[in-house]
Simulated assay, not measured.
Amino acid sequence: MLAENKDEMREKILEAALKRFMHYGASKTTMNEIADDLRFSKASLYYYFSDKKALHNAVLMKIGETFFQEQEAEADKDISSEEIFNNIITIKKQFVERFSRLELFKILNDKSEEIQQIIREVNEREAKMLTKIVEKGVASGEFDVDNPREIAQLYRDAMEGLRFAGLSCLPETLPEIDKEAFEKIVAQQKLLTEIFVRGIKKR
């Protein structure tokens, strides 16, 4: 019961932090404000999270898990692989639009071994998901490839290149996302997907 209570308290803190981060931005939020929202002492917050950075990272991990689950559910749908690729782009677009005030891309500059290990695990999870989508396309006769994992990795690398090329429109801190530049990146990703799929489609 005590463990359950600790988990519940941790979730309450994460939800309160998420709400405040989304409204004010993570960099403009203090631990005191989150503690006040919860009617906790500041010491209670530090019992669960060593500092604001640890809390911010935990919030990003929480929403990141939901983000991946949504993509993986899409990958399991009984639709064409091409549709899945495009729907995942839409999921990512909606995610960034919704959570841009969380300073999502700050974590990419964190060189600590803990965060770098998480990034490696995320990359592997995405590679597995994309491989599964390509394999589904091969099984259905949609794609004609002999090496689904290599093809999936190539697609991921190409999409990653577009994301990094446009990071200037995705602020680490406020002000708001540059919507015009962001829409351009999304359009480029959709065009790249169209060209990529055309290249591996069964003729």
Rank of each mutant, 00 (worst) to 15 (best):
residue 185 I to W: 02
residue 125 R to C: 06
residue 74 E to L: 12
residue 120 R to F: 06
residue 117 Q to A: 13
residue 55 L to G: 01
residue 198 R to K: 14
residue 143 F to R: 02
residue 42 K to I: 08
residue 33 E to M: 12
residue 145 V to H: 00
residue 190 K to R: 14
residue 41 S to K: 06
residue 9 M to N: 15
residue 114 E to G: 03
residue 99 F to N: 09
residue 76 D to M: 10
residue 112 S to T: 15
residue 172 E to W: 00
residue 56 H to E: 10
residue 112 S to L: 12
residue 75 A to E: 04
residue 159 M to Q: 08
residue 120 R to V: 06
residue 171 P to M: 06
residue 111 K to N: 15
residue 23 H to W: 12
residue 127 A to F: 09
residue 196 F to R: 04
residue 193 T to I: 10
residue 29 T to F: 01
residue 113 E to S: 15
residue 19 K to G: 02
residue 64 G to Q: 09
residue 79 I to S: 06
residue 20 R to E: 03
residue 80 S to Y: 00
residue 163 R to G: 08
residue 110 D to W: 07
residue 130 L to T: 03
residue 159 M to C: 09
residue 30 T to A: 09
residue 148 P to D: 03
residue 100 S to R: 05
residue 79 I to T: 14
residue 5 N to C: 07
residue 184 K to W: 07
residue 119 I to S: 09
residue 150 E to L: 13
residue 114 E to D: 13
residue 33 E to K: 10
residue 35 A to F: 07
residue 175 P to D: 03
residue 187 A to Q: 10
residue 180 E to I: 08
residue 151 I to K: 04
residue 185 I to G: 03
residue 144 D to R: 07
residue 157 D to E: 13
residue 59 V to R: 00
residue 135 E to Y: 02
residue 101 R to I: 02
residue 4 E to W: 11
residue 192 L to G: 01
residue 167 L to E: 06
residue 76 D to G: 08
residue 119 I to C: 04
residue 148 P to T: 00
residue 25 G to Y: 03
residue 45 L to A: 03
residue 29 T to K: 01
residue 189 Q to Y: 03
residue 88 I to Q: 07
residue 63 I to M: 14
residue 82 E to L: 12
residue 11 E to H: 07
residue 32 N to E: 12
residue 38 L to N: 05
residue 170 L to V: 15
residue 11 E to W: 04
residue 112 S to R: 13
residue 94 Q to F: 04
residue 56 H to P: 04
residue 76 D to A: 13
residue 164 F to A: 01
residue 10 R to N: 09
residue 90 T to M: 12
residue 201 K to L: 06
residue 12 K to C: 08
residue 117 Q to N: 12
residue 141 G to I: 01
residue 116 Q to R: 15
residue 60 L to N: 04
residue 131 T to K: 08
residue 164 F to M: 11
residue 50 S to I: 14
residue 104 L to F: 05
residue 18 L to Q: 11
residue 145 V to R: 01
residue 185 I to A: 02
residue 13 I to F: 05
residue 17 A to Y: 07
residue 157 D to V: 12
residue 108 L to D: 05
residue 93 K to L: 04
residue 61 M to T: 14
